[in-house]
């Protein structure tokens, strides 16, 4: 609490790393009616006063690597689909909370495309200091976000024996590399799903790597019914 009130850059002390779901949703319910409700420093004032807090990139890199290793090698070594679900759930939680913070002093998005553009521009910039490079849609509820230099995979090395994708000489090594890689993609997928669902767009998100480490496609679809 102390910390939040002193250094919070935001109107409300929301978002808690380890807190009961109920208290989160209680606060959320108050949100639409809270103009001036929380007598806390405003976003602008605080941003002027202090820089956004940062940590070394290695911190998040090693945390993610270790989290993925923990779930996919230790807890669920033989059940990759369960490991994937857990990793995605962690991402979902993070995305949900981050989008709550980053949309705090914005007007409501008028349509889904607005929200998706927000993810591609502002949200992505906060996370990776760059925007999504390309956004495509089939106008039927599927969007494809393309990041040409996805930071979290940029320093990942692939098993050298799996280098020759063309001749398929070592399918096992290749599979292994691909599987390890895909485990690392569930987390960002979860982040996007969490962020969008917080913006009122329930969807499914999947990722695809075409040419590593250059390019990652994150595609997601939502039903048109909403």
């Amino acid at each position: 609490m102390r910390e939040e009130i002193n250094s919070s850059k935001w109107h409300r002390p929301v978002i808690v790393g380890c807190m009961k779901e109920s208290s989160l949703s209680n606060r959320k319910l108050r949100y639409p009616t809270t103009l001036g409700y929380w007598a806390l420093p405003t976003f602008e004032r605080d941003r002027d006063r202090e820089m956004v807090r940062e940590v070394s990139e290695s911190c998040i890199d090693s945390l993610l690597t270790e989290m993925v290793a923990c779930y996919s090698n230790r807890f669920y070594a033989n059940k990759p689909e369960l490991a994937a679900r857990r990793i995605e759930a962690i991402g979902y939680q993070v995305g949900h909370q981050l989008s709550e913070r980053y949309t705090m002093e914005r007007p409501r998005f008028s349509d889904h495309l607005e929200a998706i553009k927000f993810i591609c521009k502002d949200f992505w910039s906060e996370l990776f200091k760059k925007q999504i490079d390309n956004l495509k849609t089939n106008h039927r509820g599927t969007f494809v976000l393309q990041d040409n230099k996805f930071r979290w995979l940029a320093r990942m090395s692939v098993d050298p024996s799996a280098d020759n994708v063309e001749d398929n000489s070592s399918p096992t090594a290749e599979n292994k590399a691909a599987q390890a890689m895909s485990m690392h993609l569930y987390f960002p997928c979860g982040i996007i799903r969490g962020a969008l669902s917080n913006l009122g767009i329930p969807c499914t998100v999947s990722a695809d790597i075409s040419s590593l480490p250059a390019c990652v496609y994150l595609s997601f679809l939502y039903s048109n019914e909403f």
């Binding site: 956004v52 940590v55 990139e57 998040i60 945390l63 993070v94 981050l98 913070r101 996370l127």
Partner: peptide, 27 residues
């Protein structure tokens, strides 16, 4: 050193860690 390394927004780190702890508590 800190001035020269690549840095990321600490919120992402903090919330990711929080989410991991939460997930571990559930599991």
């Amino acid at each position: 050193i800190f001035a020269n390394v690549e840095r990321v927004n600490a919120e992402l780190f903090t919330l990711t860690y929080g989410a991991i702890v939460r997930q571990l508590l559930t599991d």
